[in-house]
Design a binder for these strands. Structure first.
Length: 288
DNA sequence: CACTTGACCTGTCCGC
DNA sequence: TGCGGACAGGTCAAGT
């Protein structure tokens, strides 16, 4: 479930933890988690230095001094957790239990740096992947070419959101929000939270959304994403930051995973239904 | 063409 | 206690 705020939090952590480190070696236990050949790995990964860590939509990009990059999609259960063996995680360190157990049975890829520290790519459900490719090739990938705008970039506005959502007039507004070619980075948690914030029912069709509602959707979306980044993202089940920390946004969520509880705005009971083939949480009273 | 559903996977939870 | 099945939900391919 890493969505934009979770991937952004991991990016910030990795940027600090990994910058300037030199890769010694890589190992993996599941080919789909790391599909590259050993020859390419030795030539372009071993000995390369970490130059920069970036994010686009829900994808992480680690740029290397070899002009290759590691492109990483965590999908639903992926984690990237860093462990420095010179640091003692015992003695009450808040992340002791999580980090000291690595690697564990969900570890798919291990990157070891020259200084003996390690980056663990854990992925319980094996949907995620980490691919080594030339940095210049990334923008040509179909996935990247189709992506919609980043909602936290300066030029994103209510007008842009309206224009993008209207590309799918006959879809539910929730399905359109989840479509990465419409807007990049929104997943199930922040779609539900955004719709609650804008007082819009998830199943409403885009063509029936009023101008004023697009403006509310815009403000709700940006506010929800910014708040979640501030809180280190949402830990629903699996998500951890690069430092092995859980995110605390869900404690502040209004509807996500709050079915049968009172709506924080009007007090009516929050429902869980299915919209766009996803579990969908909303208040039937104040979301119109 | 626009949109929805199934596949990819494993762990957890629920009912019998 | 054990077991089958539903569910979790990001993205792509296949189906309507």
């Amino acid at each position: 479930m890493p969505e934009l705020p979770e991937v952004e939090t991991i990016k910030s952590g990795l940027q600090t933890l990994l910058k300037g480190k030199v890769i010694e070696s890589l190992s993996f236990d599941w080919p789909k988690s790391y599909p590259n050949s050993l020859a390419d790995t030795k030539q372009f990964l071993y000995g390369a230095k970490i130059v920069k860590v970036r994010r686009r939509a829900k994808v992480l990009i680690i740029d290397l001094s070899s002009d290759y990059s590691l492109v990483i999609h965590l999908k639903m259960t992926g984690q990237l957790v860093y462990k420095d063996h010179k640091v003692r995680y015992g003695g009450g360190h808040p992340n002791e239990s999580l980090i000291s157990k690595l690697p564990d049975k969900s570890t798919r890829v291990i990157i070891t740096f020259k200084d003996t520290s390690q980056l663990f790519f854990n992925d319980q459900r094996k949907f995620g992947w980490m691919k080594l490719m030339p940095t210049s090739m990334i923008e040509n990938l179909d996935f990247f070419k189709k992506l919609g705008p980043e909602p936290l970039e300066k030029d994103f506005s209510a007008e842009v959101l309206k224009k993008r959502l209207k590309r799918r007039p006959n879809s539910s507004v929730k399905a359109a929000l989840l479509d990465q070619s419409v807007i990049a980075g929104v997943g199930n948690i922040y779609a539900d939270e955004t719709l609650w914030g804008a007082k819009v029912k998830p199943a409403r069709l885009v063509k029936d959304i009023k101008n004023g509602e697009f403006t509310k959707l815009y403000h709700a979306l940006v506010d929800v994403l910014r708040l979640s980044i501030k809180l280190g993202g949402s830990t629903d089940r699996n998500y951890l930051s690069a430092e092995g920390k859980k995110g605390s946004y869900l404690a502040f969520a209004s509807v996500f995973r709050k079915e049968d509880q009172a709506c924080p705005r009007c007090g009516h009971t929050i429902l869980k239904t299915r919209v766009a083939s996803r579990g969908t949480h909303y208040c039937p009273h104040c979301q119109k």
